[in-house]
Nucleic acid binder design. Structure first.
Length: 279
DNA sequence: CACCATGTTCCTTG
DNA sequence: CCAAGGAACATGGT
């Protein structure tokens, strides 16, 4: 579930919980998540460190910590299936453990079924990111500037994190539908009005997802099993699906015009669009 | 068994 | 040199 909105919701959840917590021990479940660093380096850096803050950049989580008076940062990414949460230090760790940080009474758990995610000292991926779409200064002109005269399909460009940070496969299709732009349009040939409409649509779609996700309680219940969860609760799943106008709705009627939603493949990934609304 | 999956990166081909 | 396409990564769901 991780595109910008999901990461933003996670960061808002963790931001008030992590600062001040000291890491007593680090367990790396899969060395791969530390790439390109050797696991030992991450373990050494984190052991004894104290969390200062957590922020988001694109789909990345940026953890700021201090150890022996020295400040440093760690980059987190959820990949396709990653989840992070804080829980009481008891009971078994998840089967697909990427990493776990012992905070004393509680622990920070990073689970990732497919292990595409990351927790590393290498901050370089963040430097390659394009602008933040939720930044008020980001607009159609900023989008146009990054698109340049590219002949790539606009949908493919939206997945390029150097053009705009945080848009993934779901919201790329959603934003194009809202802006009424066909996903196959060469990016460099959009008109000014379309750049503006698309930038606005991207911002709206992402902001609504953050707002919608936030209204779904993050489930901090320490009730039954003493866990602090991150992730949509079962009941939130329905709401989540209902908010999507085209993604994963192949054959279903367009919510705007009724025409059947079409699925295609671009750059190896599914694209969904309405052939009538988007041309 | 086949195909699909919210992401990123590397390699090959044109 | 750049763009585009495909494969790889690893695992699970349908």
């Amino acid at each position: 579930m991780p595109e910008l909105p999901e990461v933003e919701i996670l960061v808002r959840h963790l931001a008030p919980l992590l600062p001040g917590r000291r890491i007593r021990a680090v367990q790396v479940g899969r060395p791969r998540v530390c790439r390109p660093d050797p696991p030992d380096r991450l373990v050494e850096a984190l052991t004894g460190a104290t969390f200062r803050s957590v922020t988001r950049r694109g789909k990345y989580l940026v953890f700021s910590l201090v150890r022996r008076r020295r400040a440093f940062q760690v980059l987190g990414h959820l990949g396709m299936t990653g989840r992070m949460w804080l829980e009481r230090s008891a009971g078994p760790l998840p089967r697909h453990l990427a990493a776990a940080l012992d905070l004393g009474r509680e622990r920070f758990v990073f689970e990732d079924v497919r292990f595409f995610g990351r927790l590393s000292l290498d901050l370089s991926p963040v430097e390659a990111l394009g602008p933040e779409p939720l930044d008020p200064a980001w607009d159609g002109a900023a989008l146009a500037a990054r698109l340049g005269r590219s002949t790539r399909p606009i949908k493919v460009c939206l997945l390029d994190q150097a053009i705009v940070a945080g848009v993934g496969n779901i919201y790329a299709s959603e934003a194009l539908h809202r802006a009424r732009i066909a996903p196959t349009r060469p990016a460099g040939r959009l008109r000014h009005a379309e750049h503006a409409a698309l930038a606005a649509a991207i911002r709206e779609v992402l902001a609504e997802a953050v707002a919608g996700g936030s209204t779904v309680p993050l489930d901090h219940r320490a009730g039954t099993d003493g866990l602090y969860y991150y992730g949509r609760a079962a009941e939130a799943g329905a709401d989540y699906g209902e908010r999507l106008a085209v993604y994963d709705r192949e054959g279903a009627p367009c919510l705007t015009c009724g025409r059947s939603i079409r699925r295609s493949v671009q750059a190896g990934r599914s694209t969904f669009h309405c052939p009538r609304c988007q041309r």
